[in-house]
């Protein structure tokens, strides 16, 4: 019984987060401006991180946690770098 409830909730979460990642990807593709794409990328990293945690819960292994943490850190560094570039890179033009 509890296995069914959890399996259902985890399946729902995996589908919802995959869909969320796809929507964030849509925003990356559509733009229209560079900051929209960076915001989409940041959201995409967050959903990917959450998807890893949920997958880890589903498989019952703690190893997905490290992957989620690395994705979170990479997302942070990437977004900060890109945002800095948007501030600095355009000044010269």
């Amino acid at each position: 019984m509890s296995g069914t409830i959890l399996a259902f909730a985890l399946g729902f979460a995996q589908i919802a987060l995959a869909l969320a990642g796809a929507l964030a990807g849509l925003r990356i593709l559509r733009g229209p401006r560079a900051q929209d794409r960076v915001l989409g990328l940041d959201t995409f990293y967050i959903t990917a991180m959450l998807l890893f945690i949920v997958t880890g819960m589903r498989s019952g292994s703690l190893f997905f946690f490290e992957a989620a943490m690395v994705i979170g850190f990479m997302g942070f560094v990437a977004t900060v770098g890109l945002a800095k570039f948007l501030i600095r890179g355009e000044v010269i033009e």
Binding site: M1, G3, F12, A13, Q14, L17, L23, T47, L50
Partner: peptide, 27 residues
């Protein structure tokens, strides 16, 4: 046990649902 499974399931559905809503808003 059931008393652990139900709150965990609710938290999972809440969290993933809010994230999905956020990206729907993003689009």
């Amino acid at each position: 046990p059931l008393w652990v499974a139900i709150p965990v399931a609710l938290l999972i559905v809440l969290g993933s649902g809010l994230t999905l809503l956020g990206t729907i808003g993003l689009v």
